[in-house]
Structure formats: C-alpha cells, structure tokens
C-alpha cells in the first residue's frame, strides 16, 4: 500500500504541471516533519509513509485543479495527513478494538476536540515555552533555527551560528532533554 501511494505521487509529479510550483522542493523540505507528526499520532513507520504520500497526492491534485485558495505549507499537508491518519486509526480501533500502534501512546492531541484535552495540551505547551525561555541564548538560537520554517539542516544551523555540527547536535539534545519533561507532562 505504501508503494502504491508513493508510486501515484511520483507519477503525478512527473506529469507536466500548468503551474510553476516546485512540489519536489516542497516535499523535500517538509516530508520529514510530516512523517514525524504522523508517527506522533501512533502510526507505524510504514503507515506514516503511506499516509504522508497520500496527503501530498491529495494536496497536489487539489492545487492543480485550482481548488486551493492559498497554499500554506507544511500546515496544510500536515492537517490533511492527520485527518487521513485519524481515519486510519479509527478503522483500526473498530477492527481490533485496539490502536494499531503501541497501546500506551498518548499524542499531544492537537486535533482532539475534548476541552479537557485541549486545556492539558495548552498547559503543556505553556510549560514547554517556559522551559525554552529558561534556556541559554545559544540554545534558543539553535532551537529557533532547527525548527524554523522552512527547517534548516544541522550543518546549515552550525554555519549560521558559527558552531560545529557536533556542538549544534549537542545543544539540540540538551534542549530536547529539558523540553521532554515539559511536553510529556512529568514534574
């Protein structure tokens, strides 16, 4: 199934487009982030790849059909992909009465409409922001660039900040370690 969606996407991209939008570049830029957001929902890696390809396929088709008023990436494709993913997960629950992924997975539930969950998400976000505010200037700068839009590779971040790639990764790991407790809700 994964190869089917991927094949369809490749065929679509090979077709001559009427617009000048560089989809190849867009996919290169945002695909990893898209997959990460799907994995975070509890999909397996194959499922995440498949859903990501389907999402790209849909977005490109709609854009080429002139159905999209504005194209904001990666937000649009992530929303599309998470919609597909939640459908997939619901089907899985219906079929097996269990999530397809690891049973104890608790995503950040940004798509959850439950007010209580939304509040918890918001509190975790605030907590993470406070942790970030407490980080050093260089840690914040690394974080800012690594998670910029479009995202920058570690080598480019290192170049911009005048650090070694190794140091950038080290700082990033430190920031992640600090943020982990905040976003995972541990004290």
């Amino acid at each position: 199934m994964a190869s089917e969606a991927r094949g369809a996407l490749l065929r679509l991209l090979e077709r001559p487009a009427t617009d000048a939008f560089d989809w190849d570049a867009a996919i290169r830029c945002h695909h990893r982030r898209l997959c990460v957001s799907l994995l975070a929902l509890g999909l397996t890696i194959d499922q995440a790849e498949d859903v990501a390809h389907q999402a790209w396929l849909r977005i490109i088709e709609r854009q080429r059909a002139g159905l999209l008023r504005e194209l904001r990436l990666p937000g649009l494709v992530i929303v599309q992909a998470r919609f597909l993913a939640l459908n997939l997960l619901r089907r899985g629950r219906r079929d097996t009465a269990l999530p397809e992924g690891p049973g104890d997975s608790q995503p950040l539930a940004v798509d959850d409409v439950d007010p209580e969950n939304r509040l918890i998400s918001r509190e975790r976000l605030d907590s993470a922001l406070r942790v970030l505010a407490g980080c050093s200037e260089s840690a914040r700068a690394v974080f800012q660039l690594v998670y910029s839009d479009p995202p920058l590779g570690h080598a480019e971040v290192a170049q911009r900040l005048g650090l070694s790639v190794q140091r950038v990764r080290q700082i990033l790991c430190e920031v992640r370690a600090k943020m982990r407790s905040a976003v995972e809700g541990s004290p």
Binding site: P102, S105, L129
Partner: peptide
Amino acid sequence: LATCRECSARMQAEAQLEHALWEVRQAA
C-alpha cells in the same frame, strides 16, 4: 522498526516529542 513493536513504540514517543517541539516553535 516495522517488525519490532518495542522500538516502534519508542520511536513514536520520540516523534511525539519532536512534533511537540514544532508546536512549541510555532507558538514561540
């Protein structure tokens, strides 16, 4: 990852953190 449930679960947890960091970055 496709075959090992344990590693897959750990990877999903790591992805949740990564996704959350993107959200933090957007909020910040």
